[in-house]
């Protein structure tokens, strides 16, 4: 029986696909059905349950900025996830306040997702509101001017194009802002 199946291409195809689909379906189709936070936008008004706030859809301008972020491959070096690691919450924090960890419901409007796999530059999941527009545009022109030692490449064509730099900064300022985690609301524009 086994030897016969071993010589049969049809038995092979069926076996290979059945084994593949067991794992495939249980890890891709089932999880979003089980875990509602994957598709329900973040909203919390009860401070006892953690940071309050509401995830808003991107505006047209922010989407334009996001497209630039995708086009230039910013996501190859910058992750967007504050992981459940103490150091991540410290590094994503600001002025002594630790950042909350990223949760699936903060990313419902992200398409394509920008979680990233490689952290050559700092994580950007909570960068929104940390630096003002002037800082960002100067930084795009030549990052090492503001951060000595930085190996981020210069993007002079973005800095020189007011429409592009405005859109990109508008997008960056949204990052991590769904959760209202900074005590005095000291966000830059």
């Amino acid at each position: 029986m086994l030897r016969k199946a071993d010589n049969s291409a049809v038995a092979f195809v069926i076996g290979a696909l059945v084994l593949f689909f067991i794992g495939g379906i249980l890890t891709t189709v089932v999880p979003p059905l089980v875990d509602a936070s994957w598709s329900k936008p973040f909203e919390n008004s009860d401070p006892t349950k953690g940071p309050t706030g509401k995830l808003k859809p991107y505006t047209e301008l922010e989407l334009q900025g996001r497209a630039i972020y995708v086009r230039e491959g910013c996501w190859y070096c910058h992750t967007q996830q504050t992981r459940t690691i103490l150091a991540d919450t410290k590094r994503s924090g600001w002025r002594g306040v630790d950042s909350p960890v990223s949760t699936p419901d903060e990313f419902v409007y992200d398409n394509p997702h920008m979680f990233g796999t490689k952290r050559t530059g700092p994580d950007l999941s909570r960068v929104g509101g940390k630096y003002d527009e002037q800082w960002h545009v100067t930084h795009f022109r030549n990052p090492a001017d503001l951060v000595p030692g930085s190996i981020m490449p210069p993007f002079p064509w973005i800095a020189a194009d007011p429409a592009e730099s405005k859109a990109l900064v508008a997008y960056l300022q949204t990052l991590g802002r769904a959760k209202d985690w900074r005590p005095d609301g000291d966000f830059e524009k």
């Binding site: 067991i22 794992g23 875990d35 994957w38 459940t84 991540d88 960890v101 699936p104 990313f107 796999t117």
Partner: peptide, 19 residues
């Protein structure tokens, strides 16, 4: 290999915002 490999995708998001 046929059975085991396909389950492992989420290990790219360990500690990340995934269940």
């Amino acid at each position: 290999l046929a059975f085991v490999y396909v389950w492992t995708g989420a290990h790219h998001m360990l500690h990340g915002p995934i269940s």
